[in-house]
């Protein structure tokens, strides 16, 4: 056994990882259960920033991610839209990533089209689509949105969209919500929007796990709240579901994706810890035998 573990083929590790993710997905789906979640201060801050807005307030939602990180960021994007729809906020969607519009479509399909069909396109929400330039786009729209956005994503002239009336720049937004998988993303929104205009622009964000440590230095002055990866999404989901779901103990499945994905994450993390422990036992036994030093 010791020799087997010492020379363990990495394909066994791959198989274990596959099972540790697949089995919880199947079991959670089968039982319809999810693990309990305790919201952190940062998730609460994100929730409070949106929750304190009033009906009709303007929120810019920039979905700067792609399908590669949908597993981590999709559930929080869904929850942001869920929360904004419940609060009856005016939602302005945009994207700094080329496939961002598809991510916006997914969220609109999952939330607005399914559960909030009373919301009207152009009056309650609008999709401004993708513009190239990353931080260049942010720098322009903080002073003049209409220079870059002459139409929405469908090609309708901005002047023909009722909710765009009087909107000159994004400093008029009551909050910016950014879901980010890299550059351009939350960091650029903080650097080029929130920092130069601290009195006008407030931002909350959600990001991938690898990005989160890079964004912590901006908390709390430049970035009041941040959802880090699927854990952050699950915490925020719980807060939104507790506050707005008709039956908080049994929320609608589309609004529990983050909570459900915490199951595979738990088992995968435990597997990694187990692998490290086993590898270190082997290392110390070998060292005691006079092997590697």
């Amino acid at each position: 056994m010791f020799e087997f573990l010492k020379n363990l083929d990495r394909r066994w590790v791959f198989l274990l990882m596959m099972l540790s993710v697949a089995i919880p997905i199947i079991v959670i789906d089968w039982l319809g259960l999810s693990l309990p979640e305790k919201p952190s201060e940062l998730a609460r801050n994100v929730f409070d920033e949106i929750d304190q807005l009033n009906e009709g307030d303007k929120v810019l939602l920039s979905f700067d991610f792609d399908p590669a990180s949908e597993g981590e960021l999709g559930p929080m994007a869904t929850s942001f839209v869920h929360h904004c729809a419940e609060k009856k906020l005016k939602m302005y969607f945009m994207a700094l990533w080329p496939v961002g519009p598809q991510m916006i479509d997914d969220s609109i399909d999952r939330v607005i089209d399914q559960y909030y069909d009373d919301l009207v396109y152009g009056e309650d929400f609008v999709n401004l689509g993708f513009k190239s330039g990353g931080e260049g786009v942010i720098k322009v729209i903080v002073t003049n949105l209409r220079e870059l956005y002459t139409t929405d994503d469908k090609g309708t002239a901005i002047d023909d969209i009722p909710m765009m009336e009087g909107v000159r720049n994004i400093r008029q937004m009551d909050l910016i919500v950014n879901v980010s998988a890299g550059s351009a993303g939350t960091k650029e929104w903080v650097q080029y929007a929130a920092t130069p205009f601290p009195d006008d622009i407030r931002i909350v964000g959600g990001c991938t796990g690898v990005q989160a440590p890079l964004l912590y230095p901006y908390i709390p002055e430049q970035l009041p709240g941040l959802l880090g990866a699927i854990k952050g999404a699950a915490e925020y989901e719980k807060l939104v579901n507790d506050a707005y779901e008709p039956d908080p103990d049994n929320p609608r499945p589309v609004f529990t994706e983050g909570l459900r994905r915490m199951g595979p994450q738990l088992v995968a993390h435990l597997l990694i810890i187990l692998l490290i422990v086993v590898a270190n036992i082997i290392y110390f036994v070998e060292r005691a035998k006079g092997g590697e030093r």
Binding site: P67, G71, L271, I276, V278
Partner: peptide, 26 residues
């Protein structure tokens, strides 16, 4: 596009597990 990019990103989990087993020594 969607399944291919999601697969590429998901493969990280497998490599992280393998790397943790091989390289993480006290």
């Amino acid at each position: 596009f969607k399944p291919l990019t999601a697969t590429m990103f998901s493969m990280l989990a497998f490599y992280i597990a393998s790397a943790a087993f091989r390289a993480f020594r006290a």
